[in-house]
Design a protein around this nucleic acid. Structure first.
Lengths: 174, 174
DNA sequence: ACCAGGACTTAACACCGTTAGGTTTCGTAC
DNA sequence: GTACGAAACCTAACGGTGTTAAGTCCTGGT
């Protein structure tokens, strides 16, 4: 808070007239970033083949994380302590919902298209699986970037291979 | 540090006679946990089929993370700020190396067995892919446990599905 | 008996998020 | 034109954090 105050050339206390506390400020920043991710997904549009759409979502997700690593950490790698929402918040839709909803919809469409193996019939579970896999690569790369015992390969390439393998693994044919 | 001091009924400063600082203490705790994970992997043994071995490693990894979530966070979800090693440390093998090495060896064997698709010929990359995918699920589940916009499915089941899909996706036949 | 060194403590430092209380600024109503 | 209320902002301080300087105590070896 003091560092921010210095940067904006105000007193630390000034910030508290605009945000309830540090957590509220970070939540707002995180919400902005979530809207940016949702916008990036929206730009993909409703590609008719849901499988292709899933592939594109994966690519866009990796690109976003690599282009905005700090934001990515804030959004997906720090626990946000369950907003107490002291003065009854409008409780408007969580901004994370949009991006996740876009992925879930694509998963739902993919299931409906009948191209997936029969064990994949829960869109929520499928979405969590695909999302998590890519997240793991990005998160580990950030956290264990300079751990000597892992010689990191190019993340973009590994992510592409992972995405391809995962897609092959869930598809009914081939 | 003060909380730890309270628990062990010593003064905070007493800790500094055994550890250079908080980071050194956490590093040591992390190292202990890494040795425990390596031991769990060692217990799997050298199953002859490397594919089966990879599957078992994945299961053991998930089990470890779910049984020791705090330790998992310390090991894989917090950045450890590149040990400055002021007074020349013995630089003995990083304890994380053992567990990761076990996985990498299995990947190497899998590649050598010729059962994998031709694009997978880098053991390091393959290890990072398989490890990351499972890590992502576990990490997101911890961080986004009570975010309202994700209805989390049973992690163990999702992990099993992910593992299976990933294996199918890297295998040459089927 | 001495003393070197380890184990431990007291007191304090600088930093952090946060708050109580006071001051300034400014748009609006009379 | 003045009064007023609210917003914007500041000073000073609180309690908490990791950390350190300096001193005390205890113990084992010569």
């Amino acid at each position: 808070m003091r560092a921010i105050a210095d940067r904006i050339e105000y007193t630390p206390t000034a910030i508290y007239h605009h945000f309830r506390n540090k957590e509220a400020l970070l939540s707002e920043l995180s919400a902005i970033d979530f809207r940016a991710l949702a916008a990036a997904f929206q730009r993909i549009g409703r590609i008719t083949d849901p499988i292709d759409r899933l592939r594109r979502i994966g690519e866009a997700y990796v690109a976003f994380a690599l282009e905005h690593p700090m934001q990515y950490q804030l959004m997906f790698m720090t626990r946000r302590p369950a907003g107490v929402d002291s003065h009854q918040d409008i409780k408007r839709g969580d901004p994370g919902e949009d991006a996740y909803g876009f992925l879930r919809a694509a998963c739902s469409d993919a299931i409906a298209s009948g191209q997936l193996r029969p064990e994949f019939k829960d869109a929520e579970e499928l979405a969590q699986m695909l999302w998590s896999a890519l997240h793991g690569l990005l998160a580990l790369h950030i956290v264990k970037e300079d751990d000597p015992w892992v010689k990191w390969r190019d993340v973009r390439r590994t992510a592409a291979r992972m995405n391809a393998a995962l897609m092959r693994g869930i598809l009914r044919h081939q």
